[in-house]
Simulated scan of single mutants.
Amino acid sequence: MQLQVIQNKIYEIRGQKVMLDFDLAGLYNVETKAFNQAVKRNIGSFPAEFMFQLTRTEWRGMRSQFVTSYTEYADNQQDALPENIGSSQKKRRRDLLPYAFTEHGVTMLASVLKSPTARKMNIAIVKAFIAMRKLVIQYAEVLKAVDDLRERIDGHDAQLNQIYDALENMLDKKAVEENRQREWDERERIGFKK
């Protein structure tokens, strides 16, 4: 699976990069319900910094991030989920809030989901998190380089202004001296004339 497909399923919630339970279940090719049951059977492996459940407000905000719109089913009180998740996860009860897994939580899933498919997918997901972290670091380095250039340019601007001021002063002095010399040369001479 391409890293980009996985990276598109990584969201930022509470200042952390996370993946949602239904996306992970889709990637692992299991139903969300079975996925969450496996996690709950091993809940001791998932402290709060590895996994947390979204609040209703966070879930509403997340739903607005999905490109596809949600269709509400008034008769069975379910929300449709985006098309990019597994077919077994197309509908989710409105009262069930998804779980979010941090990078460490995703790594811990390897000890819970032990199928060969899950292991391969887990490696791909961890690589996606690592690639995203590298991009963030590179972005920070580029911003620092731009700031350094800006400081240099600002410093050069100040130095160039000082040089321009000095040249103007020199030109003004030269003009004053030339004016004095011209006045001296054009003065009316007194004394002996030849």
Rank of each mutant, 00 (worst) to 15 (best):
L3G: 08
V5Y: 09
I6T: 02
I6G: 00
I6N: 02
Q7W: 01
N8W: 00
K9Y: 00
I10W: 02
I10H: 05
E12A: 05
R14G: 02
G15R: 06
K17R: 14
V18N: 03
V18E: 04
M19N: 01
M19T: 03
L27D: 01
L27M: 12
Y28K: 07
V30S: 03
E31W: 00
A34F: 14
N36K: 14
N36Y: 12
Q37I: 07
V39H: 04
K40L: 11
F46N: 04
P47Q: 01
A48H: 11
A48V: 10
F50N: 10
F50M: 06
M51G: 01
Q53N: 12
T55W: 01
T57L: 14
W59S: 11
G61R: 08
G61D: 10
G61Q: 11
G61T: 10
R63F: 08
S64E: 14
Q65Y: 04
F66T: 07
S69G: 15
S69C: 14
E72S: 08
Y73D: 15
N76P: 07
Q77W: 07
Q78F: 12
L81D: 07
I85N: 06
G86P: 04
G86K: 02
S87T: 13
K90Y: 11
K91E: 14
R92F: 01
R92M: 09
R93A: 13
R94L: 09
R94K: 12
L96Q: 14
L96E: 13
L97P: 07
P98E: 08
A100K: 05
F101C: 04
E103G: 10
H104V: 01
G105C: 05
G105T: 04
G105D: 01
T107N: 06
L109G: 04
A110M: 13
A110L: 13
V112N: 03
L113K: 11
S115A: 06
S115H: 08
P116I: 05
T117A: 08
A118I: 08
A118L: 07
K120T: 10
A124S: 14
A124Q: 14
I125V: 15
I125D: 00
A128N: 05
A128Q: 04
F129G: 02
A131K: 05
M132S: 10
M132N: 09
L135R: 15
L135G: 15
V136R: 14
I137W: 10
Y139D: 15
V142N: 15
K144H: 10
A145W: 11
A145K: 15
D147K: 06
D148C: 02
R152F: 02
I153V: 13
D154A: 09
D154E: 09
D154T: 03
A158P: 00
Q159S: 04
L160K: 00
Q162L: 12
I163K: 09
I163H: 05
Y164T: 07
Y164K: 13
Y164L: 07
D165I: 02
D165G: 00
D165F: 05
L167W: 05
L167C: 03
E168Q: 11
E168T: 15
E168L: 08
K173I: 13
V176T: 10
E177T: 12
Q181K: 11
Q181L: 12
W184I: 03
E188S: 07
E188A: 10
R189I: 10
I190K: 08
G191D: 11
K194S: 02
